[in-house]
Write a protein that binds this DNA or RNA. Structure first.
Lengths: 277, 277
DNA sequence: CGAGCGTTTGATCGGTGTCAAGGATCGTGG
DNA sequence: CCACGATCCTTGACACCGATCAAACGCTCG
């Protein structure tokens, strides 16, 4: 239940940019908007890190911890959540391969929420001091990291809106759209056919609903032909319809422009009133 | 309804740190955790800015805009909100005097939500390029600004949790606690007696409830003696009880340590089960 | 084959939303 | 200083979405 088993260690050195350095993932992510110069690249690839494997449900950070490291997700899925006084759990973010899952812990002293493995994961754990040093010595990298945290915050705002102002159907559809677009944008799946690595209980914790109600709603959407489920995988039968039901506009994901165009108007709707109640 | 009337202009110059420079507010906020050196201080105080007065409901930024400036709130209250397809509004943040209300717009190209005046406001509007330049040339300042955005994100996560997993009573109580603590921490009011600059409709838009239900719930809390309302001001009769009802733990606000101690345990409860349903 | 977990289903309850109307308050102009 | 309109607050009756409780079902993996 806590930290996973296998763990290799390795430090920055002259061979840092060998092809199997997992920090390439971080480099790609941070450099996606504007490519880095050689020195910036080298600085990222020379970051010290420890590689770890986590079993499902393993904690990376617990609420209240004073984190010493940040976490780059190399494979699998992580989620972040908070717990309320009566035991309820609220998931406030899902992370996919390539995400820097808790950059905020590099500057804030105490973790205000927990970070946990959704599926078995591989992560690279980077000392928070190294992250800070990099951020402030190499402005281009610092900007990219700051930017990542800002996008994370933008997604949080959309979740607030989703949970606060959309009924269950739309709420779930919106989550499915977001998940699909992020997976596809990361090159991990097609937006119309992917594996949803969440139980219905976890979906409920993302959306502020009950597992039972998630079940009924999903089932309803399935029987209407909106989507097709089998075990954990989801096939979206009609993307533009799902977008309409979910009231989904991807602007808040702040994707690179070329990617944005693919989602901008799944069916032509944008700000107008909603179809497909 | 849009931008307010009066507007003086002024640029960075040798007299920048005169006593009436409104950027002192920014300096105090950013330097609250760790004081700046002289050069950092000067760099902040020499930032170019334009001063503006806004009427209530005036927009500073609209969703979809490509902002060219960031906004330092000198006086009054601002709020940020998103609108869903069927017209519902969700407020996702409240800003008080001294807040840098939309720092994210310094790095993200397109505003993913609107920024609007809750009350008549004075703001200083700073070119986004100047903010970026400052952030990356003066690491100590950049770190403080990044940190501000991270705290903002932390509050967003708490709102997700509040809206997603707490019933109306707790939800409202939580919001009242947060507001009180932030006001007091900024030296603007006492946490047990302050003016709540929001209509019940706006409270509803913060909490994902209906105005009618906000009214009943508030009224119920009033008649129970939890709080006393008169026009817009709120007197908290029993802080520790409100904290208990609101399931409020202030850690997520990441206040400076000395301030934190005052709120940490209003009544001794912390993670345990809740009293006062 | 059994245990454990996740899904499905039905019956019922209750918290919040909706609709509608009346009352209070406040700023503004006559 | 009063009248007026606009905005906000208050209240009641009722509807409904989603929660709760409880049980059975179906995978999947030792």
């Amino acid at each position: 239940m806590t930290r996973g088993p296998s763990s290799t260690h390795r430090n920055g050195n002259a061979m840092a940019d060998g092809p199997h350095n997992p920090l390439h993932l971080m480099l790609d992510r941070l450099g996606s908007r504007r490519p880095f110069g050689d020195e910036d690249r080298a600085a990222i690839l020379n970051l010290p890190y420890t590689r770890q494997s986590l079993g499902a449900h393993a904690y990376v950070v617990r609420e209240g911890d004073k984190p010493t490291h940040c976490c780059l997700l190399l494979d699998g899925f992580l989620y972040r959540h908070k717990v309320v006084g009566d035991g309820g759990r609220q998931i406030c973010a899902i992370h996919i391969k390539g995400d820097l899952a808790d950059l905020q812990n590099s500057l804030l002293e105490e973790a205000d929420h927990s970070l946990q493995a959704l599926t078995p994961c591989d992560i690279a754990v980077i000392p928070r001091e190294a992250i800070r040093k990099l951020a402030f010595e190499r402005p281009a990298v610092g900007e990219a990291m700051w930017r990542e945290t800002l996008i994370d915050a933008s997604i949080s705002r959309e979740w607030i809106t989703n949970i606060g102002r959309r009924p269950a159907r739309r709420r779930l559809a919106h989550l499915l759209c977001e998940y699909a677009v992020r997976l596809e944008a990361a090159g991990l799946a097609e937006r119309e056919k992917y594996t949803l690595e969440m139980t219905q209980e976890q979906l409920a914790d993302c959306t502020g609903l009950t597992p039972v109600h998630v079940n009924r709603t999903l089932r309803e959407m399935d029987s209407e032909g909106l989507l097709t489920r089998s075990s954990r995988s989801v096939a979206v039968n009609d993307w533009s319809k799902l977008v309409a039901v979910g009231d989904f506009r991807p602007d808040y994901l702040h994707l690179p422009k070329d990617q944005m165009d693919r989602y901008q108007r799944g069916a032509g709707q944008s700000r107008g009133p909603l179809g497909f109640g």
